[in-house]
Amino acid sequence: MIFGLTIEKLLLIGLVAALIVGPERLPRYAESLAQFTKRAREWVSTAKTRVRDEMGEDFDDVDWRTLDPRQYDPRRIIREALLDDAPVPTVRAAQVAGAATSALAPPEQPVKSPFRGPEAGPPPFDSEAT
């Protein structure tokens, strides 16, 4: 099976292509397809050797089956994430009771906005605005 196509489907596609192209142009197209296939194989082999050269000795240690996107199962990933242990908090709340409450206490005087004038009334409201 090549990319999900069976032999019957490939034969049907080839027959339709032969009927559309015609018998006089078919050998030329077949030759160009063969050249394209050769160039694609060369490109893949050079790409593979370049990756192997750049990754070094670790290239053979990689388990490529685990990186296959067809192995991706979002349900499994979510299940594993939910079953992992909860992260340990880095800040210990209420360790020092006096320091924690004074840091979280509201200020004694309300903070004045630098954008409003000296009056402390509610902000203006326009009932006709949309």
Rank of each mutant, 00 (worst) to 15 (best):
S127F: 07
D53M: 05
R41F: 08
L12K: 08
Q35C: 00
P23F: 00
G4S: 01
L15H: 10
F36D: 11
E80A: 05
I78Y: 07
L26H: 00
L12N: 14
F36I: 05
T130F: 11
L12F: 09
A103Q: 08
E31I: 10
G56T: 03
Q35L: 10
R39C: 03
G98M: 07
M55V: 11
S45Y: 08
V16F: 09
A40C: 08
K112E: 12
T46I: 08
F115P: 01
P118A: 06
E31W: 12
G4L: 03
F36Q: 12
I13S: 05
P87R: 03
I2W: 06
E128N: 11
S127C: 07
E31P: 02
V91A: 09
I20S: 04
A18K: 03
E57C: 05
S45R: 15
K38A: 14
A17H: 05
T66F: 01
E119N: 14
P106V: 01
V51Q: 06
L104V: 08
E8A: 12
G4M: 01
P106D: 02
S32H: 10
Q109S: 10
R65N: 14
P69S: 00
R70E: 10
R65I: 00
D84G: 11
I20G: 00
V21T: 04
F59Q: 04
G117S: 10
P23M: 01
V111H: 05
Q109V: 13
G117F: 00
D58A: 15
R92Y: 05
P107Y: 03
L83Q: 15
A40K: 15
E8G: 12
A99W: 09
L83S: 13
M1C: 08
R52M: 08
Q95S: 11
E57Q: 10
T90I: 11
L5D: 04
A105Q: 07
I20V: 15
P23C: 00
Q95I: 04
Q109C: 04
E24G: 05
T49N: 14
V44C: 06
P69K: 02
S32C: 07
K112C: 07
M1R: 11
Q35F: 08
D53K: 10
E128M: 05
D68Q: 02
D85S: 09
S102K: 12
P89G: 05
V88P: 01
T90A: 12
F125L: 13
P123K: 10
A18S: 11
T66A: 12
V96Q: 11
R28N: 07
T101A: 15
V96C: 13
S32W: 08
D126Y: 02
R50Q: 13
T130C: 07
P69A: 00
T130A: 13
K48P: 05
P27H: 00
T101C: 10
K112L: 14
S113Q: 00
T130E: 15
R25T: 05
A18E: 04
Y72V: 14
V96Y: 12
P69I: 02
F125S: 09
R75Q: 13
P110Q: 06
F115I: 01
R25F: 01
R50A: 14
V91K: 13
F115N: 10
P124K: 02
D63K: 03
